[in-house]
Design a binder for these strands. Structure first.
Lengths: 198, 198
DNA sequence: CGTCTATTTGAATGTACTCAAAAGCGGTGG
DNA sequence: CCACCGCTTTTGAGTACATTCAAATAGACG
């Protein structure tokens, strides 16, 4: 098994145990994909038909609000997963766009293959449930920060948690994710620098 | 099976199929519990040892921020589930408090019983995974609203989505959940009333 | 090199917060 | 049954954080 697939399977095994035999079948269902910066994995209006594992690089998902402004829902860094879970699960047409923010190496699991794995391997369901749980916990923390912390604090939390984010994502997208304007993030960074808290 | 338990099992079956035999074993693992207003289901500092199904009433989970202010993480209305999923899953001590906001009827699933069900019934794992997925989607929507919408919009979204929330929760807690001060929510409601948009 | 987009800068504005105080409301004990 | 206590909600003035808009500068990409 390639080193890349080994990273993927190690990710699956993080919070559960899966036998080597199962892992080799499971990992055979993924398709490797190299994508250029800004390439779309999902466009709003379509139905989301795959889950992506980010081996290298970074992707973002976002939506356009009622005023047509881009709102970043999440970033997926290396060793993360990304999809529109709502559209993927329920077959709705998606409102979400997913796009690489830099050149990236992805592993794609189509809905058909996903369904096979879910019904064939209870251990895969467990792994997937754990992903959902962690995503939920992460998102809960994000909401909590949004209602609790001011913008500088949220920015510092984010950059501490994901030190490479400024390489992987534009300031505009980071501002969107933080829920502030790019202008204000710019001013805020300048102020933090002057105070030596960057 | 009691009518109350039937609501519970119907909830489990919402997004998957479970046989009647399995359902009767699964539901036998829950303990019925009547709780008074403001009773604690979990106190910060303890480890969360159960998941609760709210048959009737309402519960809230919250945390105290670095300034000692109460921050409401979620409400669980009738036919919802509530726990500290992080503490419950990983055995950490919890930072979260869970409390009924009104007199409520709950069904409690202890960690031991949960583990039995998860390992014994793949269909229960599927149901639980679906709960996690929906919680994740709900929380993602909350984050998105927090970065996209202003306070009046968030308030109207919330009250439209959960029309009974004002019976079940204090204005103070609703304000906390929305990420605004109670004073501002009060002013905001007055303004909406005058404009006839309540 | 030129074009397009991202980032920076600054002034004016608005949304939401803090603080303080008054009014309302529910529960409890005399 | 009512009076009191504690907590929630309301009100208002002053303030702070973050936005909008406009324009200049910098960077990326063909």
């Amino acid at each position: 098994m390639s080193f890349e697939l080994e990273m993927l399977t190690r990710n699956l095994c993080k919070r559960t145990t899966i036998s080597p035999e199962e892992l080799s079948i499971i990992s055979s269902k993924f398709q490797r994909q190299e994508v250029a910066k800004n390439q779309f994995l999902l466009k709003g209006g379509r139905t989301c038909k795959a889950i992506y594992y980010v081996y290298r690089g970074c992707c973002k998902s976002y939506i356009f609000d009622s005023l047509g402004k881009k709102r970043v829902i999440m970033f997926a860094f290396a060793d993360w997963w990304i999809t529109d879970i709502d559209s993927f699960t329920n077959g709705h047409q998606s409102k979400i766009n997913i796009q690489s923010t830099v050149g990236s190496i992805l592993y794609k699991l189509t809905k058909e293959n996903f369904n096979e794995l879910i019904s064939g391997f209870p251990s895969f369901e467990t792994a997937f449930r754990n992903m959902m749980q962690f995503s939920y916990i992460r998102e809960q923390r994000r909401s909590l920060e949004l209602i609790t912390d001011d913008a500088p604090t949220r920015y510092l939390n984010l950059t501490n948690r994901y030190p490479n984010i400024e390489q992987d994502a534009s300031q505009k997208d980071i501002a969107s994710y933080l829920g502030i304007t790019p202008e204000f993030l710019s001013a805020l960074k300048k102020k933090l620098l002057k105070e030596g808290r960057s």
